[in-house]
Amino acid sequence: MTPPDAPHNRWSDLDRPPLNAAALRRGLLKPGGLWTSLDIVESTGSTNSDLAARAAGSAGGTVLVGGTVLVAEEQTAGRGRLDRSWTAPPRSGLFLSVYLTPGDVPAERWGWLPLLAGVAAATGLAQSAGVDMALKWPNDLLVTVDGTERKTGGILAERAGDGVVIGMGINVSLRAAELPAPHAGSLGLAGAVSTDRETLLRAVLRSLEEWYGRWREADGDAAASGLRTAYAAGCATLDRTVRAELPGDRSVVGEAVAIDGDGRLVLATGGGLQEPVSAGDIVHLRGAGGGLT
């Protein structure tokens, strides 16, 4: 018999109960809705890798359809941007991926999907957790802990099959001693009124369904759907001096002045020049929150 305090016992941490798949399906899988299936696994390497393999047909089983949701209680090889690892204690956060197939939207507009996911997650979490959320371009979720901006979540989007896999990792109940890095935070440390993961997950997925629907109805036009305005309004990177660490070991320092029509961050650099950044790592040097983030 497994001792009740064994490390992987489902009830070893009563502050972190397991998710109820049946209850989540009842609340989220509706006729005519975006979400078509929702599965929860106890542990996996990466939910993004799992869905991407299924989309490519390399995992066997049934064909992956749009609206699939995969949630893990624990990820052992979670991935962030630039192949960075993402790890957290079991049931301490939301670790999920969704598969979307926006086939009727021009492919050149699909680059807005990770930014859309950021807006949706920030909106859903602000409403359900009662915590002020901000976005760091392109796809980090920020909270304020003891007056300092901290990363509490990240988003990774990957083309797979006929669609896009969008993964989210969100720190919910991580305690200070469990944080993986000094710049990390969690909803709990930011004073969330609720860290109930089922409540938070429902809010995030409903918000994602709403924003994705608006975007598709506008044929992927970020301006017409209101997505570009919403992203800019919640983006903590704008109006700050930043350093963009770009591919090829190049870096640019400038003021982040806009998000352009393609979702790129526009930097005003020396001599009145403006440079759009489509990929890279952004470091906040100074501005609204102060300090380096």
Rank of each mutant, 00 (worst) to 15 (best):
M1P: 13
A6C: 04
H8F: 11
D15H: 13
P18W: 07
L19M: 10
A22T: 13
A23M: 11
A23S: 14
L24W: 06
R26V: 04
L29S: 10
K30Y: 00
P31T: 05
G32M: 05
S37K: 00
S37I: 02
S37Y: 01
S37G: 01
S46N: 04
N48M: 09
S49K: 07
A52Y: 06
A53D: 14
A59S: 15
G60T: 15
V65K: 14
V69P: 00
E73H: 15
E73Y: 07
R79C: 06
R79F: 03
R81G: 14
L82W: 12
A88C: 08
L96I: 09
E108Q: 12
A117S: 13
A122P: 15
G130C: 11
D132A: 15
D132N: 10
M133I: 08
L135V: 13
L135W: 10
L135E: 12
D140P: 10
L141D: 14
L141N: 14
D146W: 06
G154L: 05
I155W: 03
I155H: 07
R159D: 08
A160E: 13
V164D: 07
L174S: 08
A177W: 07
A181F: 03
A184D: 02
S186P: 02
L187K: 07
L189Q: 00
A190C: 15
A192M: 13
V193N: 04
V193Y: 02
D196P: 11
E198V: 02
L201N: 09
A203G: 09
E210M: 09
Y212A: 07
E217V: 10
D219G: 14
A222F: 07
T229M: 14
T229A: 15
Y231T: 04
A232T: 09
A233C: 13
A236N: 11
L238G: 11
L238W: 09
V242M: 02
R250H: 10
V252Q: 12
G254L: 03
V257W: 04
V257P: 11
A258N: 14
E275G: 01
V277P: 11
G280I: 00
L285S: 12
G289S: 10
